[in-house]
C-alpha cells in the first residue's frame, strides 16, 4: 500500500518548482527566503511604514466636523476581522463595498472631508492599518444571497480573454501559474497580501492596483476601481483566495 504513495511523493519532490501551482497558494511561497524574512520582520518590512502612518491618520481630526476615526470607532484593533471579509454586499446601496470604498465613504459622509484619492499614501495608510488588524485571519467572503450575481460576474470576468493580447486572468493565474513570464514566476493570483509592497512598484498598492497592472499588461481598458465590474472581480479573487491567512502588509516582487 505504501510504496506507490511514496513513489508519487518522491516524484513530486524531484519535480520541485516545475510543479504547477494549484488551489490556494499564497504568493508568499514564491518570494524566496530573504523576502519572506523581510515580510515577517515588523521592523524591516517597508509596508509597516504605512501602518505607522495609518496610526497617526487614525487619530487625527479631519474634515468639517473635526472628528478622527478614533472618535467614532475607538482603537484600530476594533477593525479586526473586517478586511478578511471584504468585499461584501451593502444592502442599503445594493452594491459591493471594499476596504477602500469604506474608508473613503467614512471620510466624505461622516467626517465631511474630501475622500483620499485611490492609491494615495493617505488612503493606503488607513487601509493598510485596518488590514493589518486582520493579519493571520483566513479570508472568508460571502458569495451567496444578494452577492451571488456579482460573484458570477466576477467569475466570468476572470475567465474572459481581454485586451490586445487577448489573454484572461485565468490564462495566467489558473492554467499557467508556476510558469515563468520573462523572469517572473506567475503566482496563483491570490489577494491575501493586499495592501502590499511590490518591489516593481517601489511602493504600496491595493488589490485594485494589481488588477489595473495586469489589465495593462495585456493592453486592456482599465477597470475603474469603484465600479460594479471591478468590485465583482475583487469578490471573485477574494473567494479564490478563501482560507488563506491575510498577510498585509505583504511583500511581493
Amino acid at each position: 500500500m505504501r510504496h506507490p504513495l511514496l513513489l508519487l511523493w518522491l516524484l513530486l519532490a524531484l519535480e520541485g518548482q516545475a510543479e504547477p501551482l494549484t488551489g490556494q497558494v499564497s504568493g508568499y511561497h514564491l518570494l524566496g527566503e530573504e523576502l519572506q524574512a523581510l515580510q515577517d520582520d515588523a521592523f524591516a518590512n517597508p509596508g509597516m511604514l504605512w501602518v505607522d502612518r495609518g496610526q497617526r491618520a487614525w487619530n487625527s481630526p479631519a474634515g468639517a466636523r473635526g472628528t478622527s476615526c478614533r472618535d467614532c470607532h475607538g482603537g484600530p484593533e476594533r477593525m479586526q476581522g473586517l478586511a478578511a471579509q471584504l468585499p461584501r454586499w451593502n444592502a442599503e446601496d445594493k452594491r459591493l463595498e471594499n476596504l477602500e470604498g469604506l474608508v473613503r465613504n467614512c471620510r466624505s459622509v461622516r467626517q465631511r472631508a474630501d475622500p483620499p484619492a485611490y492609491e494615495s499614501d493617505e488612503l493606503l495608510a488607513l487601509t493598510t492599518l485596518i488590514a493589518y488588524q486582520s493579519r493571520g485571519l483566513p479570508l472568508t467572503v460571502a458569495v451567496d444571497g444578494p452577492a451571488a450575481d456579482a460573484f458570477a460576474a466576477g467569475r466570468d470576468a476572470f475567465a474572459r480573454r481581454r485586451g490586445q493580447l487577448d489573454l484572461s486572468c485565468a490564462d495566467c493565474h489558473d492554467r499557467h501559474a508556476g510558469a515563468r513570464l520573462r523572469g517572473e514566476t506567475i503566482s496563483a493570483g491570490m489577494i491575501n497580501g493586499f495592501p502590499l509592497y511590490r518591489l516593481t512598484w517601489e511602493g504600496m498598492g491595493s488589490r485594485q492596483r494589481m488588477i489595473r497592472w495586469c489589465n495593462e499588461a495585456v493592453r486592456a481598458e482599465p477597470l475603474q476601481p469603484d465600479t460594479a465590474k471591478a468590485l465583482a472581480l475583487e469578490l471573485f479573487l477574494a473567494w479564490r483566495s478563501r482560507g488563506l491567512e491575510l498577510e498585509s502588509p505583504a511583500i511581493r516582487r
Binding site: 474572459r160 480573454r161 481581454r162 485586451g163 490586445q164 493580447l165 487577448d166 489573454l167 490564462d171 495566467c172 492554467r175 499557467h176 489589465n215 495593462e216 493592453r219 486592456a220 481598458e221 482599465p222
Partner: peptide
Amino acid sequence: IMPDYCRSGDRHRVAE
C-alpha cells in the same frame, strides 16, 4: 495562450 499577432478582431476591452 500565445496571441495572434496579425489579428485584431473580436477582442474584449482593448485599451483605447
